[in-house]
Amino acid sequence: MEDLFRDYWWLIFPLWGLGMGAWHSMANYRRKTRMLDIVRTYAEKGEQPPEALLTALNREDDEYRDGCRRSPAHYWSLVALFGVLGVGFGVGAWSYDFQGVGWPFSIVALVMGAMTLWALINALFIARAPGR
């Protein structure tokens, strides 16, 4: 068992990320279900639900679609981040290549370069939402 943990300890982090994503999705589902139950109660009484409740139901979806997650400014910061990381890992690959162990750094540098290119394309071609 010790060998298994020593070889695969790093799997804790992706599993933790998956667990947190599932927890967030479940919490969002429960919150939306409660809001819809309240709307259903108003509908059964024949009353109009408050506008604030209907706005709260749609607000998060609109923010996700049109919000800051897709703004070009966000992608420019990702261009800088992935560019610096790619250069750093590229320098690491070059410096460790003399010892014959630089190939993992090369792979990471290539991935970071691809992420830089992806962020650059998004920063250039995603239109800024009106009023932002």
Results as ranks from 00 to 15, higher is better:
S25D: 00
I38P: 06
W94R: 00
R34L: 03
G67I: 02
Q99F: 08
L81F: 07
Y96F: 11
R69H: 10
R69C: 08
G46C: 11
T41M: 11
D61W: 15
H24F: 00
Y42W: 11
V108C: 14
N58E: 13
A80P: 13
R31G: 06
Y29T: 07
I107H: 12
G46Y: 06
K45V: 11
A52M: 13
L54S: 05
A52C: 13
F82S: 10
G90H: 00
Q99E: 15
G88S: 06
L78W: 04
H24G: 00
A22L: 04
L57V: 00
R69N: 09
A93W: 00
P50I: 09
L57F: 06
E47G: 13
F89A: 08
L57Y: 03
S25W: 03
S71W: 05
G88T: 03
R65N: 09
Q48R: 14
G90V: 15
A93V: 04
L81H: 01
Y29K: 01
P72L: 08
F98L: 12
G100N: 15
Y29E: 06
V87T: 05
H74W: 04
A80S: 09
R69D: 05
W23N: 02
L110Q: 13
Y29V: 06
D61V: 10
A27R: 01
D66W: 14
G102S: 09
S25C: 05
K45S: 14
I38Y: 00
D62L: 06
E44G: 10
W23E: 04
L54M: 06
L81R: 03
H24D: 04
